[in-house]
């Protein structure tokens, strides 16, 4: 044994304890491979060189966090575990939240999830160790680190990264309304709408998928949420919802999706209904058909 063990210290800055509980499970259950990583949990922050931080940073924790950070000796690496440590997530609008933690310390690795799977936490720690190794050799932090731990799978029903089926989305904004952590943003453009899901703010609750009237937004079982800090704001799922041109008057309009029509006209043949005309022309046509 030549290399000394990596010394890990965990700080809870006000999390709901989900990440901390899962961290304990990661550390002590063998199947999550932490035991093979040469990591040691230490009692004092002075000895540590790998910091794991959870929570959105409450105002009372702030001064203590600063004090603990000042005791750290370089080189060290920081891993933020949980969505709220990255972007405060669901707690962002509160008066007593001073985070996210990257205002006060240079975070290297972010593990999104609410809470993340132990597999993801283990991966985050593995990447943190990698960053630490590079730092002690005096090298720069890379732009991307490939997946280190392999062979983990998620069950089919696991609520992982959200995704959008653009063809049946009508930009009705239900998902935006029910999302508790304001991870979804729909912007109107000239040609339609842009639907963004920010994975580093998402709390993976599946509320949007449950309430979506057409089933356009859905959760995949992909749990690849361990990213480096430079990917913090670019980790998005972007969907572009285009307007259609009315075949009769030439105006742009939002076509009703097949999903929505299927709900409204359960007994009818959808192909017959879904002529590409705007609602104004459809009304006119219906009027002519009935009264002309």
């Amino acid at each position: 044994m030549s290399t000394p063990p990596v010394k890990l210290f965990r700080i809870n800055t006000g999390s709901c304890n989900g990440c901390d509980v899962e961290f304990v499970a990661t550390a002590f259950v063998d199947k999550f491979q932490i035991s093979s990583m040469n990591v040691e949990l230490v009692e004092n922050v002075e000895e540590s060189n790998l910091l794991v931080i959870t929570g959105p940073l409450t105002s009372k924790s702030e001064s203590f966090l600063k004090k603990y950070i000042s005791k750290l000796k370089k080189p060290y690496a920081v891993v933020g575990v949980g969505t709220c440590s990255i972007s405060c997530g669901i707690f962002r609008d509160s008066y007593s939240i001073n985070g996210p933690i990257d205002k006060f310390i240079d975070v290297n690795v972010n593990v999104a999830g609410c809470p993340p799977r132990p597999e993801s936490i283990a991966e985050g720690i593995a990447k943190g160790i990698k960053v630490l190794e590079l730092k002690s050799e005096g090298e720069e932090t890379p732009q991307k680190i490939e997946q280190i731990l392999i062979g983990f799978e998620a069950p089919k029903k696991f609520r992982g990264r959200m995704s959008l089926n653009e063809t049946i989305c009508t930009a009705c904004r239900t998902c935006e309304t029910v999302c508790p952590s304001t991870a979804i943003k729909i912007t109107k453009t000239q040609n339609g709408f842009i639907h963004n899901i920010w994975h580093n703010s998402c709390c993976y609750c599946g509320n949007c998928a449950f309430f979506c009237p057409t089933g356009a937004i859905y959760s995949t079982n992909n749990f690849d949420t361990v990213k480096l800090q430079n990917e913090k704001f670019s980790d998005l799922n972007t969907g572009i919802i285009n307007l259609s041109t009315c075949s009769s008057c030439g105006e742009s309009y939002m076509p009703p999706s097949s999903g929505l029509l299927g709900k409204a006209y359960i007994h009818n043949n959808l192909k017959k209904l879904n002529k590409s005309i705007c609602s104004k022309c459809r009304k006119e046509e219906n009027f002519k058909r009935m009264y002309a």
């Binding site: 800055t13 006000g14 009372k60 707690f91 007593s96 508790p180 709390c203 609750c205």
Partner: peptide, 23 residues
């Protein structure tokens, strides 16, 4: 105490009934 105070009672009044299911 007070390290985990996130102002939940204020937060729930800012979110609607659907969001509060998760909050």
């Amino acid at each position: 105490n007070g390290f985990i105070h996130r102002g939940m009672e204020s937060l729930v009044t800012k979110k609607n009934f659907m969001q509060n299911l998760i909050l």
